[in-house]
Design a binder for these strands. Structure first.
Lengths: 210, 210, 210, 210
DNA sequence: CATGAATGAGATTTCATTCAT
DNA sequence: CATGAATGAAATCTCATTCAT
């Protein structure tokens, strides 16, 4: 399944390369020329088909968030056991970010901008994902009895996965600078396992003292 | 202590507003006009004092990373006990991000861009912080005996703190969209406590089964 | 025939006024604004059609040198007698400079700059003209038996014609300063006749003594 | 003797490097920064000592033309025989251009610009040189009986020497493009000899027929 | 006497957008 | 339905010049 499944092929052929470039350079750093070149269409065609730089960006974001929401909702549908649901949540997010490496940087750019370009549609998509995540996490023992805020847990999960996904490119640049050979195989897979261990598989935490 | 302590007052008066704007809009989204206006100087003065846009950006990044590295190193200096050191690490990072709210978005923009604009000086600053963090985390029981990768722990800590710091602005935009009243007081303070609980205060994790 | 015959009308409408201004003010002294104004198009249109200032300049130079080369080659084609060929060479150059008064100053600016801006295409054009001139002059009796270097002859012919063409504007400024009434009708026509007399019509020179 | 002998050492230390740069890049292509750097003084010092970009340029031109005029007048002083005088004229000009390679390009830039920047002082210098040259050439047999215009002869001499002096830099760029090995040792020396032969040593020309 | 600092004006170039076809 | 052509606005950067010290 792809993020832009709901759009016409005409739009998809523009939105997919656009997403790649927006992810790499952010909204301001992306030019319509570059999108047109990557999409293999005339620049005016983008205006004809979609309308606007802001609209292209919005469609990409909406597509991404709706995709995440849909996949999450589909996989969580009819799964009753809290720990199973949480496991699916984390695994699904990790899998989506692994498959669509553009999502983390794109969303991070937006987040870092304070959500300047977020249209109501995009906010709705974000809310949908957030809602699913929060309700799923709220049912966890760790939250129910452990006193962990579900929003904090959500932020940790998303933040950890995003950073892991992004660490690759910068890590390589750092490689020459870091003396000792730290592990290079930092991957979403490993982070996913750590998150599962910390939030899902583990029993309600027992503090060091007490 | 301030991030641009090592620079001349002349440079500081430019770098500080520049950092604010870069954080908000990213490198590409920031114009020299805006920086000049915010700094209260003529645009050409920026070129005279610093050189060009890329150099302004670089100085800001170097200033930020060196500040983090210095504060960390100073506070960790002569603290021998691993758990104390880790606690200081997390608390210091949380405090710095709380005081300098511009850092997380600025660094996130850069990270999301794949570190395209990272000069050797900036990379050196990053490496310095990373090194401190990794060696500190490596001494934790959870890492030593719990099998948790220090790099994963580092990414979780940074990622969680960054996301928490950023969540404020977007959360407000979401407020209207999210029906139920989720906690609004998500703060670095709370996230810091959760991180301490998960990584520092807790004993070596005991899996659910076995 | 015109220098920019090979270009599209769109390009010609830019290159022709550009040539005029480059000739008057040189490369550095010419602004894109001025070219745009003279061409009656928006400044961005020049970038759309041609690319950048250096390319505009290059096209002008290439157009000029190719024009000279083509006219020379066409008029010399199938003329076997050396003296006839040389006469045609001088007359053609004089005629071209007379018709296109912009050429000498433009080329002089470039020459004075040491050919800094000369692209391979322009150099090829220059070489083509030079080749034609040198082979033509080499066949002259004065060169064959008189021991005059064909390159020196070429330089004298070009230099004399260029200076004559340029003398007009400065001469007028000098007019007030020069007391006696020197001839005002210094023209390419007269210089051409003198060159023909010195290099073409005359027999192999007999030195004063011997 | 040097072109800027009449100026104070303070001015000379600026005018000499300025002349070099003006010669290379022309008036518009030369920046005050570059002059200051080459002169090893602060940019404001140029304004303090001389006053103005236009004034710097003017002083350089005046210096050059006065130098030529002075040397010519000094060497021609009390030389009565026309042929001797003409020989001295040509030899002196060739020697000056050979010694001060910057003169031809600088004067050519100015000439190509139509004398836009020529102040009255500079025009007076030019007139002085021109006067000397014309009166000297007017006495030649070739002019007196040969019907050659002294102004044409002047233009040929100056034009030929200038072009010869400039040909070096462009010739090297052409070297790769010109197939056959044309002589490389085109020098002012050779051109001077040719000019002497054509205008001075030779008897009044006898046309080919008649 | 000299200069570091500053700047208004203007240079080249890019870019989102429009429009006639 | 699509696009080549065009452009106003704004971006980065340069430069001749001034001025306080």
């Amino acid at each position: 399944m792809h993020p832009f499944t709901h759009h016409s092929p005409n739009e998809r052929s523009i939105l997919e390369p656009a997403a790649r470039i927006f992810a790499l350079r952010g909204y301001a750093g992306t030019s319509m020329d570059e999108i047109a070149r990557a999409a293999g269409v005339n620049k005016a065609t983008i205006y004809y088909r979609i309308g606007n730089k802001a609209r292209v960006y919005e469609r990409v974001l909406v597509g991404y968030f709706c995709h995440i929401a849909e996949v999450l909702e589909q996989r969580l549908h009819a799964v009753p056991i809290p720990r199973d649901r949480a496991r699916i949540l984390v695994e699904t997010l990790a899998a989506i970010f692994a498959e669509h490496g553009d999502m983390p940087p794109l969303l991070l750019h937006e987040l870092a901008s304070g959500g300047e370009h977020l249209s109501p549609d995009v906010l709705a998509g974000i809310a949908r994902v957030l809602q699913t995540s929060l309700t799923t996490l709220s049912a966890l023992p760790m939250v129910q009895q452990g006193g962990v805020s579900p929003l904090l847990a959500h932020l940790m999960i998303i933040g950890s996965l995003f950073f892991t996904s992004l660490s690759g490119s910068v890590a390589m640049r750092l490689a020459a600078n870091i003396p000792q050979g730290t592990e290079k195989d930092v991957s979403l897979e490993l982070m996913k396992d750590l998150l599962l261990e910390l939030f899902v598989d583990r029993d309600v935490p027992s503090r060091k003292e007490d």
